[in-house]
Amino acid sequence: MTAAHTLAGGFPDISKMTVARQAHWRRWLTAAAIVVVLAAIGRAFASGQIEWAYVGRFLAAKVILEGIANTMVMAVLAMALGIVLGVVVAIMRLSPNPVLTSVAAGYTWLFRGTPLILQLLLWFNLALVFPTIGIPGLWSARAVDVMTPFLSALLGLGLNQGAYTSEVMRAGMLSVDAGQYEAAQAIGMGRLRALRRIILPQAMRVVIPPLGNEFIGMVKATSLASVIQYPEVLHNAENIYYANSRVIELLIVAGFWYLLVVSILTPLQMLLERRFARGALQIAR
């Protein structure tokens, strides 16, 4: 060691040295073990009693594609209904008016407190309670004609979702600093305008991750509508295996489509999050 390689106080000069790469051999070992296990499971399925040819044949069958399209239509519409209801109910819940607060609390209590499948069956069988429905003197119809599988599923899923979404929205609105509401009032805004212009846009940033979660839940919850004859993907897959007895093959087909849809939704959520992070990018990074 020459004097040039020593720092003041006799410490070695490390500024020219490189840091050696760590071996991470434990990571390699666990990864290898996981691959072996996965291969074993894969082999078991490949040699099990599954006719993979059937999976391939029905993967893009017209009835299945129609089913997944119906699934998506229902998920989007029911979620839209749920978000609209959720925002309205959350605003009611936070209102100073005790009548509105009670109505909102009652709605959440009722629709969150009973199983979704029970609600779907109730809507679908509404004709048993009210054979005809309508507005007296103006319009009436037989309930069996009105309560189609589509409308029953939409109301059942949407109203149930609204109860959950209202709590997500309420949490989002409460997360906004009270000073924001005061600042909005100070420039002469009323309650609703302050909510729409100031509070909700900021709440959106907070609620999008849980709402994305809820929407993924909704995509899968539409499968419950199979019990009321709504032709979504699981219902259609069931109809096929009732005919050809290829139960597992068709369940795998349905499962594939659910996974695909959910995989596409995740990056979409990221895009939305970025959209509503306006003005907050510096804090988020």
Binding site: D177, G179, Q180, E182, A183, A184, Q185, A186, G188, I198, P201, Q202, R205, R278, G279, A280
Partner: peptide, 18 residues
């Protein structure tokens, strides 16, 4: 309220607006 303007201790600017 429109007759008064208020400036707060913690600014309370709307963070989602320029």
């Amino acid at each position: 309220r429109l007759k008064t303007g208020m400036v707060f201790q913690r600014f309370n600017l709307f963070p989602h607006m320029t």
